[in-house]
Computed example of a mutant assay.
Amino acid sequence: MQFGIFTVGDVTPDPTTGRTPTEHERIRDTITIARKAEEVGLDVFATGEHHNPPFVPSAPTTTLAYIAAVTERLLLSTSTTLITTTDPVRIAEDYATLQHLSDGRVDLMLGRGNTGPVYPWFGKDIRDGVPLAVENYALLRRLWREEVVDWEGRFRTPLQGFTATPRPLDGVPPFVWHGSIRTPEIAEQAAYYGDGFFANHIFWPASHTRQMVALYRRRFEHYGHGSADQAIVGLGGQVFMRHNSQDAVREFRPYFDNAPVYGHGPSLEDFTSQTPLTVGSPQQVIERTLGFREYVGDYQRQLFLMDHAGLPLKTVLEQLDLLGEEVVPVLRREFAARKPVHVPDAPTHATLRAAREHAAPSLDELGARAVAAER
């Protein structure tokens, strides 16, 4: 099982000091946090994509390419890549380039985004959110899998004899997770292609996450990709830890109360009882996280949000120490002991490449080869 962290890249005042970091500081701190994640033994670092204040990660591939250069084994991902407002050609070429720069240490999570104004900024209509996600991803898959693409759709200009460059590393496209908080169509899309489904699992109760994951698993099996319990599932989560749980609650409360996303709403106590947010000791985080398996089944990736709501860098790095030293080793051991042998691990470039080398050519590949030969 993969463990890691994801960031939304918010630039938020620290409510205990009133100081707001500069954009420069926040971007540089993101690099420090990613390097720390590798140092403490985590597997994955993922960054969001936002194009509005108070967020800074508007160019995730640039940030991830820099992180790739200063790390050795950390898997780089997104949370999320906006498949609705980012052109599929741009995604295909950017992430193939990142594959080469990172020697394959990259996958990505596609999503619709949760900021309404972003659609007109990029010439799109939010009412087309789901159709955009469906059409753009269908094109993206072809761009990565076919040398020459002729294509015409509803939302962009046609392509004639187009080849996306560079080609995916080793001929293996990055693994794709489809991320969603509340959209069943995205779970259906992930299942249709046999891709991963990432349930954000932050703002909603366990019953909602259970329903979304169950839908994805049923449809994954329906489309013939394997049994429902072999579907590839990832979960988000939020934690804040101190060795003494009372200290954790006292320290985190002002950050929670003033957070740009959930501040000035439910109390910290109500929110932690109704959602997966865990504020307490490392042991409480372990017990809560292990409990996720009870309602989503065996899953492959767990990412935690830890650097948000104005938390200073020093505190975030302390959180990562606790996560890497006291929480993740126990979670690795416990999840591994409970996982049946037929449930797969999360795909990586190495495993996808090995599977490709041992698989017979698909009909799509045979057709693409025939077209190339005719040319």
Rank of each mutant, 00 (worst) to 15 (best):
F155P: 06
L169M: 14
L323I: 11
D270F: 03
A187S: 14
Q302N: 09
Y295S: 01
A34R: 08
N52P: 00
P60E: 08
M241N: 08
W151R: 04
D10W: 03
Y299G: 01
H24F: 09
L320E: 08
T209M: 07
D94C: 05
D94S: 14
L82E: 07
E49N: 07
D14R: 04
H100T: 07
R353V: 03
A370H: 10
F335L: 15
F198S: 00
F304D: 00
R112Q: 12
F256E: 08
H342W: 12
N114V: 13
P60V: 10
V343D: 10
R154V: 13
R141F: 03
G280F: 04
D10V: 09
T7K: 01
F45L: 07
V261C: 03
T157C: 01
V44D: 00
L320P: 00
A37F: 07
Q230W: 04
Y299V: 02
R242V: 00
E325W: 02
T32M: 06
L311D: 05
Q302K: 11
L305C: 11
R26A: 15
F203V: 10
V261F: 12
L82Y: 04
A373H: 12
E318S: 13
A372E: 14
A248D: 08
V149D: 10
P361R: 00
Y299N: 02
E251V: 12
T86H: 03
G171R: 04
D307H: 13
Y216N: 08
D103R: 13
L215E: 13
F197N: 01
V106P: 02
R333G: 04
R253Q: 14
D321W: 01
L323Q: 03
T61G: 02
H349S: 06
S77Q: 04
D270K: 09
S273L: 10
A34T: 11
G161W: 05
V44A: 01
M241H: 06
P344S: 09
R253P: 02
E147G: 14
R90G: 01
F256Y: 15
W204T: 14
Q230E: 15
Q189I: 11
D94V: 04
V11G: 05
W151A: 09
I181Q: 13
T62Y: 09
A354G: 11
Q2D: 14
G265D: 12
D170M: 04
P260R: 06
P131C: 08
A346F: 15
A65K: 03
E326P: 01
T272D: 07
R242M: 09
H308E: 15
D103M: 04
I286G: 00
F6G: 02
R182H: 07
S281W: 07
I33R: 00
